[in-house]
C-alpha cells in the first residue's frame, strides 16, 4: 500500500449522522408500538403510567441534559487546546452516565419489589393494557439504558485517545462523533421522558 493518507472529516461525520438515523428508527419501532397501544388502551395507560415517579424521570432528564452540555463544552475546550479541561468535562459526562444508571437501578428496583416486571405473577393480574404499558416501559427504558452504557464507553474511549494525543486540537472527529452519539442518547430520552412520565399523569 502506498502512504496515501486520506482524512475526510465531513465524510466521517456524514457516516455518523447516517448511523444516528438508524438508531432513531430502531427506537421508532418502540414509539410506533407505544402510539398504537396508547390509542387502544388510553385508560389503562393512564392508570399504569401514573405509577411512574416523575421525580426519578425528571431528575434523570436534568442529569442527561447536563452531561450533554459537558460534552459540547469539552469539544470547544479541546479545539482551544485546553486538554485537561476537556478531560475533566468528559469525566463529568461519564459521572452523569453513572448517576443516570444508578437512578434507573433504584427506579427499576422499586418497581420490581412491587412485583411489576415482565412475566411476574402480579403483572398477570393487571388489565391487558397495563401489562402492555409496563412491558413497553421496561423494553424502551432498558434499550435506552443500554445506549447510555454504549455512549459512556465511547466517551471513555475518546478520553483514552485524547490522553495519548491521538485525538487533539487538529484531529478531533472521533470525539465529535462520540459526542454526537451522546446527544442521540439524550435526544431519545427527551421523547421517552414526556411519553412515559408526563402526559399520562
Amino acid at each position: 500500500m502506498s502512504g496515501h493518507v486520506h482524512k475526510d472529516y465531513i465524510g466521517a461525520k456524514f457516516g455518523m449522522w447516517l448511523f444516528l438515523f438508524t438508531e432513531i428508527l430502531l427506537f421508532g419501532g418502540l414509539f410506533i408500538l407505544y402510539a398504537v397501544y396508547l390509542t387502544r388502551y388510553p385508560q389503562e395507560f393512564i392508570s399504569a403510567g401514573s405509577e411512574l415517579n416523575v421525580w426519578f424521570g425528571g431528575g434523570n432528564t436534568m442529569v442527561l441534559l447536563t452531561s450533554s452540555l459537558f460534552v459540547a463544552i469539552s469539544i470547544t475546550a479541546l479545539r482551544r487546546g485546553a486538554k485537561t479541561l476537556c478531560l475533566r468535562l468528559l469525566g463529568g459526562t461519564i459521572a452523569c452516565a453513572v448517576i443516570f444508571m444508578v437512578n434507573k437501578y433504584f427506579e427499576w428496583s422499586a418497581k420490581i419489589s412491587h412485583g411489576i416486571y415482565p412475566g411476574s405473577e402480579h403483572l398477570k393480574e393487571l388489565q391487558p393494557g397495563e401489562m402492555v404499558f409496563f412491558n413497553i416501559y421496561y423494553l424502551t427504558t432498558g434499550l435506552h439504558g443500554l445506549h447510555v452504557v454504549i455512549g459512556a464507553v465511547l466517551i471513555a474511549w475518546s478520553m483514552f485517545l485524547i490522553k495519548s494525543d491521538k485525538v487533539n486540537a487538529d484531529d478531533f472527529v472521533i470525539l465529535e462523533n462520540a459526542g454526537l452519539y451522546w446527544h442521540l442518547v439524550d435526544l431519545i430520552w427527551i421523547f421517552v421522558f414526556p411519553l412515559y412520565y408526563l402526559i399520562l399523569h
Partner: peptide, 14 residues
C-alpha cells in the same frame, strides 16, 4: 426470553 409479550394477546399485545 424475558416474557415481555408485546405481541402476545394474553398480555394485551397484538
Amino acid at each position: 426470553v424475558l416474557g415481555t409479550g408485546l405481541f402476545d394477546p394474553a398480555q394485551g399485545g397484538d
